[in-house]
Write a protein that binds this DNA or RNA. Structure first.
Lengths: 356, 356
DNA sequence: CTGTTAGCGCATTCAC
DNA sequence: GTGAATGCGCTAACAG
């Protein structure tokens, strides 16, 4: 139980004052070469860990942080991410941060673009980005980099960008596991329906593409024989979906459905309404409607991506980086949780109560 | 973004000094009736949330907390619980606590008894207990209660005790889900082997009994037809197990094995050594050997109980209770994580890195 | 460039 | 009984 080393201790050991140590720790300059050397020598010998809460207590600086995400829906995936971000702010209440939330329509590239433009006009200290459109995000982050504004990604990463960190699940593995799970619960000869959303601007979300690849690889590696069929579906014209699906399920006799985006409940509800109980489902994201479908037995396995933690750690990492400029771990893949009817309640209750 | 209310604010509102408010908040007495009323009135109007970090900063008191658990093994279940406890201590470093770890042999009731006796002789402020033997624990906690020492359980709860809280998974549901998983991966006619450990003192661990009940209920509710066979196994005479199992697997042709305690790797390793690859396995607890077996394909599904979080929240709850005497939530069931070969790495990496 | 000082929110003296 | 003063570890402002 040896006492923690404090700034004061370092000051004594280096033969300088606490103020000087603080200046060095924060790279505030105005320090002589000799003082710098003496302190750095001590720092190498001892393991100094600043106490972030106390630090924040006396820190006058306020950090302006933008959070840019797709539109948040109640009980949805992005709400969980935002909740996680808010939990960090609560847990580190001593640190003064001014969070600014910007939401864009993830199915409309123009909405995303104008949100990015708006952010660039503000003067922010850092950004948390939930990306959807690859090129737009690359352009945006390039401008952030030019301004020296650090940023982190949540949900997924984007090629050719330089975030200080990203927090996401491995979407490829997610799809791979979905393949495994569906293969466990339907006979090897029955058809599997796949759902994939269509976006304005022609791009399919990066995450879905990766999941599809994972699913396909599992399918091939394990010599699955189930016929694969695409389920037609439109996010922008939802009124057409019911007819599309009626037609589809009339023509196709499926053993199971795999939904590679978070909209599994749409299919599940369709099946429920039409009393089709034989179709097994594997879906992503414990959103409220998905949880309902899981509990009612229309979804058999649901994959969770710990969105609260993505948000929580993204904000926490950003704060620690802003305050101490410590190097941070860049790649952060969160667990993929396999949820069933039996385990879902414990899962959600825990996520609701976990604060800190 | 309204400013947090501080003790100072309450003092002004109630027309008293900060010292008086503090005395009232902590029930230290020496307060006049009129001051008490004025402050309590204000407290009802505002939502005062003390900042635990700053509180600890100026708190002189040191808390002596015993942690009583079964022996800790490297990469084992109980090590994770202890790690979680340590993480709380790190996250709340401003709070001065003197943790005392007591370990007993969970397969020997006499070891447990003498550990409890030793603890009763010390003067502690609170206890975290990982219970195994029902009666012993009831006797022990009764004595703690007489001394007014608060305690919390991790891993499982014990009937007829009054902990301020317990943190465990729902072992019944765990067994139930294990039944579901094994039913997904073996044909309906193949045999299932069940493993259950034997203990000195005749008692089988409470957790295993509950899991067995859950498993049995799933089996019956779903009209499973697989023959069930007990696998002979001894923890105290491990040298006999190899011969026992040889004999057993020679006589029985199994489709799968369900291990209701954390020793699944023992069977998995046996199967590996004897090149028996056709037997599917569902086990509990991502201990290092179990993780190995999962990755090598000898275990197919592993159930995780978030032991780190059990420890983390147990200690955190205890500290908050000791410092603020706030009411705490008593029942705390952690999630049951379903792990596979594909997801295990993300799971363990996350648990290793989660600090706070 | 540097040491000293005040103050963050809170608990704890110690005079009054 | 009570308010004012002190200190926890850290940062910021200021005087030299």
């Amino acid at each position: 139980m040896q006492r923690k080393v404090r700034i004061k201790d370092i000051a004594v050991m280096a033969g300088v004052s606490a103020g000087t140590v603080d200046r060095i720790l924060h790279n505030r300059g105005n320090v002589s070469e000799s003082a710098l050397k003496a302190v750095e020598k001590v720092l190498k010998e001892v393991d100094y860990k600043p106490n972030i809460h106390i630090s924040g207590l006396s820190l006058k600086r306020q950090y302006k942080i933008v959070i840019i995400t797709p539109l948040v829906h109640e009980g949805g995936y992005w709400e969980s991410i935002v909740n996680g971000i808010r939990k960090t702010l609560k847990a580190y209440e001593n640190i003064k941060v001014n969070p600014i939330f910007h939401l864009y329509n993830q199915y409309d590239i123009y909405s995303c673009r104008s949100t990015f433009d708006a952010v660039l006009k503000e003067n922010v200290d850092a950004a948390i980005i939930g990306p959807t459109f690859k090129q737009e995000t690359q352009l945006f982050t390039k401008k952030l980099a030019e301004k020296g504004i650090p940023y982190v990604f949540v949900d997924s990463e984007i090629d050719d960008t330089a975030p200080i960190a990203f927090f996401s699940s491995n979407h490829y593995v997610c799809g791979y596991v979905m393949g495994k799970l569906i293969s466990h619960i339907i006979p090897p000869d029955e058809g599997i329906g796949i759902l994939q959303a269509l976006r304005v601007g022609g791009e399919s979300a990066n995450t879905t593409v990766l999941r599809k690849k994972g699913f396909g690889d599992y399918y091939r590696e394990n010599n699955m024989k189930n016929p694969i069929v695409q389920i037609p579906f439109s996010v922008l014209e939802p009124e057409k979906n019911d007819a599309l699906m009626h037609d589809f399920f009339h023509k196709n006799r499926l053993g199971g459905v795999v939904v590679l985006n978070s909209r599994g409940s749409v299919i599940a509800n369709f099946l429920a309404k039409n009393n089709i109980e034989s179709v097994k489902m594997v879906c992503v994201d414990p959103t409220l409607p998905n949880i309902d479908a899981l509990k009612n037995g229309f979804i058999d396995f649901l994959i969770g991506q710990r969105p609260e933690y993505q948000g929580f750690f993204a904000m926490r990492t950003l704060l620690e980086y802003l305050i101490f400029r410590n190097p941070v771990q860049k790649e952060n893949y969160l667990p993929l949780d396999i949820l069933t009817k039996e385990t879902i309640d414990y899962y959600t209750r825990f996520n609701d109560n976990f604060y800190l």
